[in-house]
Amino acid sequence: MSDHIEKNLANDGIDRRGFLKCMAWAGTGMLWSVSGGVLSSRAFGADDPAVGAAAASADFSFVQVSDSHIGFGKEPNKDVVATFTAAVDRINALPTRPDLLLHTGDLTHLSKPAEFDTVAQVLKGAKCGESFYVPGEHDVFSDGGKAFKDRYGKNTKGTGWHSFEHKGVHFVGLVNVADLKPGGLGTLGVDQIAWLKKDLEPLGASTPVVVYAHVPLWTVFPKWGWGTGDSADALALLKRFGSVTVLNGHIHQVLQKTEGNITFHTARSTAFPQPAPGQAESPGPMKNVAADKLRSMLGLTSVKYVEKHGELAVVDETLE
């Protein structure tokens, strides 16, 4: 751990800069590039020139950040504002300014007004175009989502779902954390699915579609609630499209899956990692992780989507 200490002010074996270096896994987000309707993505890290190069040759790029959990303050991350800010710093260090920023939920930990304030303050520093948000369960459970919608869901429908076009790509933000039922998974509900049907109807099948929601829209691990009960109804509406990219958060780790023309991807948290499905007693934060082990354990994994015989293929690669 000594190579992470430059100024050990608190005499606790690690300084702020070293802390952020150790927490490289946490200050991450995803940079997405769109080229001729084909999306490619990379997790962005401070020292990766390839990230910027991918964006530079694209039609446009956007970033996904997730699970900032502002308000969390326990092991393994007692300064989630710092790691969230580190993610913003990395966005700002990109050579090409992203057109959009998507936050896929759990902006806050306890949906307190001060936490929502902090999220806004940190993201105010992000040099990118417009920002879009979908709530996580931590953003809505205390007041039914009112504070979230008032502040981060203006001009959205229902509990915060929305769609827009950007340079030929159709973006859809879905909410699957409202009105959760006991024992159940995430849920979209009939109203939202009816809206989605109408929203997609006018689009040609060649329109690239990006769908983002907090809880995975595929069943990752139902025992921990990692899935969306009625996602099949939404995915059925997306099947006819040639290119569909589904972006989620919630599980604080990168997982991908391809099903036909639909590619699913979950993003890391900027706050703390969670265990792989079923690999711990509960999905709580991974606490006792040695700082020098974090980077190798969580690493910085990137995903690239390449066109191949009309299908999308997922290529995993590490940045190291």
Binding site: E137, H138, F141, K181, P182, G183, G184, L185, K223, G225
Partner: peptide, 29 residues
């Protein structure tokens, strides 16, 4: 919301079965 060490009490004055769950993690019942 019950944060770490948060407590909540409820007095049950009528017989019956009261099912409950966690609004944040609904798989908890």
């Amino acid at each position: 919301a019950l944060d770490t060490d948060g407590r909540f009490s409820q007095t049950f004055t009528a017989p019956g079965t009261y099912a409950y769950y966690c609004a944040v993690h609904p798989h908890m019942t």
